[in-house]
Design a protein around this nucleic acid. Structure first.
Length: 551
RNA sequence: GGCCCCAUCGUCUAGCCUGGUCCAGGACACCUCCCUUUCAAGGAGGACACAUGGGUUCGAAUCCCAUUGGGGUCACCA
């Protein structure tokens, strides 16, 4: 009954995901809010792994998502050991390692008659549910038969090794959930049935482990997604039966796709399947997925491709996968501080017209009262605009540093083919048109193509080289002659060298575009003098000559 | 279907608690124009919302009720 009134320093929040290699943006937002709430109040932020489902593996790689958390700048005070983070007095932080701890509380509940063994099999329960559904009634496990079993009978069946679960004996009465974000809600009597708290394999269910661990770890504030709202009733009755303190709850609004659907890793498969169908692809491109896997995946919409396999397939067929995980956004060249900023804006706002802020600001200002109640649709376009703004606000040096770091990790080939000076020039020429740290790599692949392998986009060729009166090629020839006589290969020198020609034509574009196409293969590149300068004299002239020769 | 929750521009939201200053503010997207050697970026304008119906009140986006719509949840998953 008594929600505790913590002193500011006593605030403890936790992020408690099930094991996963990747962090979903929704999870990231939850973690960010938990972190900001605790850290802004001088409290502790705990990371706990909810690995009570033995069907899901939970080896070391299963907390790969922690690297995403740290990349975002969300550190934790307690939790699994991970590259210098984690540890703490309330471990272990993997629930699968806390089984003895739970047993104490199972025994306590059992001895007090607040819990009991039940022997129905999964099949029997499924049948009961099916029957209830036929009658259009909700299924509620009341446990009359199970509780009618004599103590001796229970002992006998347990001794005989009959599979059994432990269920909580929910007492009659309405249950009121107090929520700092949504307000109070009361579930009528009977809504919460006698739910399972220990599975037949001896593991606690989520509901039980959460309640015990939150108490043992001193968690004062439970901030989690709204999908957990109704679960809170189960947690409350458990807390009361166990004589635990009740944490303060705050259920965060959900984050959806722009079309209102739930954001899920399956969205990637959806996009891939569509791309495969649209392009009429019947066999997997070599080096992506093997044929058997591919056909199985194509046939059964419930099969998901591994992350890497999907990525390579997408790349091979030129499909762009939607970013779902934090790591997807990292690969796409988004800045962690921008993601935090934008994520925070989905479900919270500092009020007024403020919408650009950093983690420190969030830490200092985040509060439950300003969390909105309505679900948000995740608008990648706005995120991209935020990313652009942040990149434009960078100094040239910072931009170079961060793009280089991104390039070394994501595009080592590209990086190895450019000299430091070339790379620096490319950064300077690309800074103001970069929306992500990845843009410059995606749009300038022509720079790393060997001169003799460059091919030309037919449309661009037709429009800017063959087309025009006189044809673009005429100007290209003239420009080529001027360039060949240019001793100094720098932006100002190149500009000066071509000036007479552009002046006489009266339109710079008429020589810039043919040059651009000849040298880059397409109609888009950094400013033409920059492009030529980065490419260098030899490559530039070679490419122009090859282009002219190909006509 | 039962139960629970929610409802301001296309989207994220401010305003709502403490009715009047809101013929509703900001941002992204969109449209127009300007700038421009491509693509961007940038500059200047513009269009765009209180779901509906009842109350309460001198007055409602703000309070109450209903309807409609949306979401969540009903597992030995978390």
């Amino acid at each position: 009954m008594t929600a505790r009134e913590p002193t500011p320093s006593a605030v403890v929040t936790r992020f408690a995901p099930s094991p996963s290699g990747h962090l979903h943006v929704g999870g990231a937002r939850t973690a960010l809010f938990c972190w900001a709430f605790a850290k802004g109040r001088g409290g502790r932020f705990v990371l706990r792994i909810e690995d009570t489902d033995q069907k899901r593996s939970s080896d070391a790689a299963s907390i790969g998502f922690v690297k995403d958390l740290l990349w975002l700048g969300i550190g934790f005070d307690e939790g699994p050991q991970y590259e210098g983070h984690g540890g703490g007095p309330n471990g272990p932080y993997f629930q699968a390692q806390r089984l003895e701890l739970y047993q104490r509380y199972f025994d306590l509940l059992l001895s007090r008659g607040d819990a009991y063994y039940a022997f129905e099999s999964a099949d029997e329960l499924a049948a009961m549910r099916a029957r209830a559904k036929e009658r259009n009634e909700p299924f509620r496990y009341t446990g009359e038969q199970a509780r009618a079993l004599s103590a001796d009978e229970v002992k006998r069946r347990l001794a005989a090794g009959d599979p059994a679960v432990i269920r909580f004996h929910t007492r009659a009465g309405p249950i009121t959930i107090h929520d700092e974000i949504l307000g109070d809600a009361t579930l009528p009597n009977g809504e919460v049935d006698d739910f399972v708290i220990r599975k037949a394999d001896g593991f606690p269910t989520y509901h039980f482990a959460v309640v015990v661990d939150d108490e043992l770890m001193g968690v004062t504030h439970v901030l989690r997604a709204q999908e957990h709202f109704n679960n809170s009733a189960k947690h409350i009755v458990l807390q009361d039966a166990l004589r635990f303190r009740r944490p303060i709850y705050g259920h965060l609004p959900l984050i959806f796709n722009p079309d209102g659907s739930k954001m899920s890793k399956r969205d990637k498969d959806k996009v891939l399947r569509k791309a495969v169908a649209d392009k009429g692809i019947t066999a997997p491109p070599p080096g992506t997925v093997d044929l058997a896997q591919f056909t199985a995946w194509l046939k059964d919409k419930n099969i998901q491709l591994e992350l890497d396999a999907g990525q390579s397939l997408a790349q091979a067929i030129g499909a762009v996968l939607p970013e779902i995980n934090v790591d997807d956004f990292r690969r796409s060249g988004y800045l962690p501080e921008v993601i935090c900023n934008f994520l925070a804006l989905n479900g919270w706002s500092p009020g007024g017209d403020v919408e650009k802020f950093d983690r420190e600001f969030l830490k200092a200002n985040f509060d439950l009262a300003r969390v909105v109640k309505t679900a948000a649709k995740f608008d990648r376009t706005k995120l991209l605009a935020f990313n652009l703004d942040a990149i434009q606000a960078m100094s040239r040096d910072e931009f170079v540093t961060r793009v280089a770091a991104h390039g070394r990790e994501m595009h080592p080939q590209f990086m190895s083919k450019l000299t430091e000076a070339q790379f620096r020039s490319l950064c300077d020429a690309s800074h103001e048109r970069s929306k992500t740290l990845d843009d410059l790599f995606r749009t300038n692949t022509f720079l790393t193509t060997p001169d003799d392998d460059l091919s030309w986009d037919q449309k661009a060729l037709a429009k800017f080289i063959r087309g025009g009166t006189p044809a673009g090629s005429v100007h290209l020839v003239a420009a080529r002659d001027l360039l060949a006589r240019c001793d100094e290969w720098t932006v100002p020198a190149l500009e000066a060298a071509l000036k007479p020609l552009s002046d006489s034509i009266g339109n710079v574009g008429l020589i810039a575009q043919p040059l651009r196409v000849a040298v880059s293969g397409g109609s888009v590149s950094p400013p033409i003098y920059d492009t030529l300068a980065i490419l260098g004299r030899e490559s530039s002239l070679r490419r122009i000559d090859r282009c002219l020769a190909s006509l």
